[in-house]
Design a protein around this nucleic acid. Structure first.
Length: 271
DNA sequence: CGCCAGGCCTGCACGC
DNA sequence: TGCGTGCAGGCCTGGC
């Protein structure tokens, strides 16, 4: 479920409730998510303060006095803040409990998510060390992405989702950004001109920023006692609109398979 | 029942 | 031999 905008919305929703709070206990109900949940969290974290919540790609980074807790939401994960004594549901695998009586609870039916640990620099963690450029930052430039794609003969849709080049663009936003840029998802990455790469990079930033803004209205949903955390509905231009008319030209939106993933596009607007 | 789902790592085959 | 690259498989559960 979560793509970068959802992860960033989660970060912004959690931060005001948890930053500065002291951790009193850690509850691991399911010891294996995508990878084993480090057992030592239960002894490392109690008594330690949570300074700040940061984000790198789709990883949430919890800066604590003892080190860094790293959380990835996978495809079905969500985090919320609730009273620590709230009875856990079937897929509530992990709690961070705080001195103020609240807990941050990880819910993840498919268990593709992860809870990891880094003693110091989380960006040096093996899973984060080789990540590519962060969109919506100065580090993300069209010139660099242009250089990086000169050897890539794969379709631009798939290259756009290569986290070693650029992070945070998942299956939905890859289709959306390519529509905004007017680029056919089947185009070989290395055949795009610098000007078109520039348009694509702008489209990635605009698409993600717009989705994050849309997520702002859901922030209050991160604190409540029951129900689902309520991710926002994306107002997609092409994603999931197979067979429906393009909002720009009226042609029917097409759905194809690329790398075992669905891609949606308008064959008229995207060349 | 089969198929689909928004992530992302691993391992394999291939070509330079 | 050692890489970068492209591709398939796999992890799980739930909804249609």
């Amino acid at each position: 479920m979560p793509e970068l905008p959802e992860v960033e919305t989660t970060r912004r929703g959690l931060a005001p409730h948890l930053e500065g709070q002291t951790i009193t206990s850690v509850i691991i109900r399911h010891p294996t998510l995508r990878w084993p949940v480090p057992q030592q969290l239960t002894t490392l974290l109690p008594g330690k303060q949570l300074h700040q919540i940061q984000r790198r790609a789709k990883y949430l980074l919890f800066d604590t006095e003892a080190g860094w807790l790293i959380v990835h939401l996978g495809m079905s994960g969500s985090l919320r803040v609730l009273p620590a004594n709230t009875p856990p549901g079937k897929h509530d695998h992990f709690d961070l409990v705080f001195a103020n009586g609240m807990a941050m609870r990880l819910h993840d039916p498919r268990r593709f998510g992860a809870v990891l640990w880094a003693d110091d620099d989380p960006n040096a963690h093996p899973l984060l060390a080789s990540l590519g450029m962060e969109p919506m930052t100065d580090a993300f430039t069209a010139e660099k992405f242009f250089q990086d794609t000169r050897t890539r003969s794969a379709p631009i849709k798939q290259v756009l989702m290569d986290s070693h080049l650029l992070v945070g663009v998942g299956n939905i936003y890859a289709s959306e950004a390519l529509f905004v840029a007017g680029i056919n998802p089947k185009t070989q990455a290395k055949r795009l001109s610098l000007a078109r790469v520039q348009r694509l990079c702008d489209a990635v930033n605009i698409t993600l920023e717009r989705a994050i803004r849309a997520g702002g209205s859901t922030l209050r949903d991160f604190v409540k006692t029951d129900g689902e955390p309520g991710y926002f509905q994306l107002d997609a231009a092409v994603y999931g609109r197979s067979g429906e008319p393009c909002r720009k030209c009226g042609a029917l939106i097409r759905q194809i398979r690329q790398g075992q993933r669905s891609t949606f596009y308008c064959a008229v607007c995207q060349r």
